[in-house]
Write a protein that binds this DNA or RNA. Structure first.
Length: 593
RNA sequence: GGGCGCGUAGCACAGCUGGAUAAUGCGUCGGCCUCCUAAGCCGAAGAUCGCGGGUUCGAAUCCUGCCGCGCCCGCCA
């Protein structure tokens, strides 16, 4: 629709100048019409009233008289102080059918004019399986990766592996010091591991982690354990290779199990970067050295060092510590080193973080600014709660993503079995897997990230309406039509465009409503990518599916064994957009369902 | 106590760089399968946009005060 906007601006510019409006603030006021029957774009004329000493509806009316319609804008009307522009149906159809809407492909990076973007997401501590709350990060992050690719950016996705903190140390200590029997004794009051996951290492090893957390609260042993763990953490922070190797042996199988879960959700990473790298390669000490020369640098009584970010406008607690009294670095310090390294790889950085990291992220960002770097873009999300409270791996109060995916698949299989009695078990399983995983992803993507929500099984497993299966279903309809046309010997390709009859007198309005949604498709994608808000594009895809269904109702592509070329072209373009958009959201497009 | 965010029909959620009758889904009520997949479509009822003030020709949207909820306020990660 940007092209229509440009055209309308060109029409309006001289007419407004004649009235005495010479600046171009009005360009920002042109908006997509809310009253669809009035037009596509509208200019509210209220703001001109004072300057021109005229009533808004008079202004709109006189502008309307001054404007001539043309082959793009077929109608200009004025109502209630609004000047409305209605695009020509023929122009709209030619624009869309003529291939002016970029389809895109989320599976590929487009090389030309590509902005290079590095998206870091998930980066969960490798100490246990994903629960639904932690997975929100991965799903949002991966969707951002896909949407940026669809948009044409050159994207690299990264998982920052926390391979040296206390959490890994706890896991490593437990694996080295506790037997399986001891672990299960300590956890005897908790639910056992779901037997399906007994051999999946993230589920198996998290028991050691949880047992260690119990012992760390046990007065009789806690001091000794704390000492042992502290020693390991300290060694890791000093780059002790023996300890770092032991940590890796402890966490790598867990991480592999976690990644298996993500891969079922079609989430993959281009790179894994380990936190310890920045300690062992000297980056962290170089940065601490540089920070100590800054004007806002300060030293505490015990020798710990900080920046006073209050001097740069930070409110609340303003001291940001980057070095302990013993000279070692902190997590945030390493994160700064990581960011500087990321800037050496890409132009733009995007981080996906939980809302608990807001302050930390602000501090890192301000410190980067002090060192002459840009701030990364950050997508923050709120947590997913359970009806009875917060999810916590440590306390074992969680819904595991693995369990959710199993349930979702089982539920989808029930639905398919009921309505497609002729499908084989293999077909059903394939469809159910696609539907289940897509629905889980979509249910998380569609809500605005800054909104916290409560996880409820019945909602997570709901496939009606506002959901991935709704979109998948529309797409499947379009594939079914295409294959029927093929059976009749008619395939859609660009050459068909020549044969299309642009006399639209008998064509139902619903086709043009679909065309309008298609024409705004790339605008919606661009907005979602620029603002890092995947839910906006989720809405667009829902609207596209919805209008496709309206078109499907009114416009029969095949009638009396004959193919209508215009309808087929529209159906196929919608189909391609649905498909690429679904890939952009991580929804699996199916041929049949 | 301080900082940041959220509060929109019974439920869930969109709209938030100000503009026309606040969009959508679930749920409720009523209709549509001799016709390309009914996981669909059509229609009806349902909203003091948390509350109060302000700015404006115009506020769900901007400012401000209050209320409720979440997160943060380690020389933890």
């Amino acid at each position: 629709m940007e092209i229509l906007r440009q055209h309308v601006e060109e029409m309006l510019s001289p007419a407004l100048a004649n009235l005495g409006i010479t600046n171009d603030h009005w360009k920002g006021m042109i908006s997509v019409s809310r009253e669809k029957q009035m037009g596509d774009l509208s200019l509210p004329c209220f703001a001109f009233a004072k300057q021109l000493s005229m009533a808004p509806n008079e202004i709109a009316e006189s502008l309307k008289k001054a404007l001539a319609t043309n082959e793009i804008v077929e109608e200009v009307n004025s109502t209630a102080g609004y000047l409305n522009f209605k695009s020509s149906r023929k122009w709209l159809a030619k624009y869309v059918i003529g291939g002016n809407v970029r389809i895109g492909n989320a599976e590929l990076n487009s090389a030309n004019e590509a902005e290079s973007v590095l998206i870091e997401h998930t980066s969960a501590n490798p100490n246990g399986p994903f629960h639904v709350g932690r997975a929100r990060n991965a799903i949002l992050g991966d969707t951002l990766v896909r949407l940026n690719r669809l948009h044409g950016n050159n994207v690299r996705s990264e998982y920052y592996v926390d391979d040296m903190g206390k959490q890994v140390a706890v896991l490593a200590w437990a694996l080295a010091n506790l037997s399986a029997e001891e672990v299960e004794n300590i956890l005897s009051d908790r639910e056992p591991v779901n037997e399906i996951w007994e051999t999946k290492p993230d589920h198996a090893r998290v028991r050691w982690y949880q047992a260690a957390q119990v012992l760390r609260n046990d007065e009789s042993v806690k001091d000794d354990i704390e000492k042992a763990i502290g020693k390991m953490v300290h060694a890791s922070e000093n780059g002790d290779h023996g300890v770092l190797d032991a940590f890796e042996n402890a966490y790598q199988p867990v991480l592999d199990g976690m990644l298996e879960t993500l891969s079922r959700l079609r989430i993959n990473f281009d790179e894994f970067t380990k936190e310890s790298m920045f300690v062992t390669n000297g980056d962290v000490s170089n940065i601490m050295q540089k920070l100590s020369t800054l004007a806002i640098h300060g030293v505490a009584d015990n020798g710990a060092e900080y920046l006073d970010l209050g001097a740069r406008g930070l409110k609340g607690k303003t001291e940001f510590f980057y070095r302990r009294g013993d000279g070692s670095s902190l997590y945030a310090t390493r994160d700064i080193a990581y960011h500087i390294w990321k800037y050496s790889q890409c132009d733009t950085l995007i981080n996906v973080l939980g809302e608990d990291h807001k302050l930390q992220s602000k501090q890192v960002s301000m410190t980067l600014n002090e060192l002459g770097y840009n701030s990364p873009e950050v997508l923050f999300y709120s947590f997913i709660k359970l009806p009875d409270g917060k999810m916590s791996t440590r306390r074992g109060n969680v819904v595991f993503m693995d369990d959710l995916l199993e349930e979702a698949k089982a539920h989808a299989a029930e639905v398919v079995k009921e309505i497609r009695t002729d499908y084989t078990d293999e077909q059903i399983s394939h469809i159910a897997e696609a539907v289940g995983t897509s629905a889980v992803r979509f249910n998380i993507i569609k809500v605005s990230p800054d909104k916290g929500f409560t996880f409820r099984w019945e909602e997570a497993l709901s496939f009606d309406s506002d959901s991935a299966p709704f979109i998948m279903y529309s797409h499947t309809r379009s594939r079914s039509i295409a294959s029927k046309c093929l059976a009749l010997g008619v395939a859609y390709d660009d050459s068909n465009i020549e044969n299309i009859n642009y006399d639209f007198s008998d064509i139902p309005q619903s086709m043009f409503e679909l065309l309008r949604v298609i024409a705004t498709h790339n605008d919606a994608l661009m907005k979602a990518v620029e603002q890092n808000r995947p839910n906006l594009f989720a809405n667009q895809l829902l609207a596209l599916a919805n209008h496709y269904n309206g078109f499907y109702r009114d416009c029969k592509v095949i009638s009396d064994g004959k193919v209508n070329q215009t309808y087929l072209a529209v159906s196929e373009i919608a189909s391609k957009l649905l498909r690429s958009g679904m890939i952009g959201l991580g929804i699996e497009p199916l041929e049949k369902m």
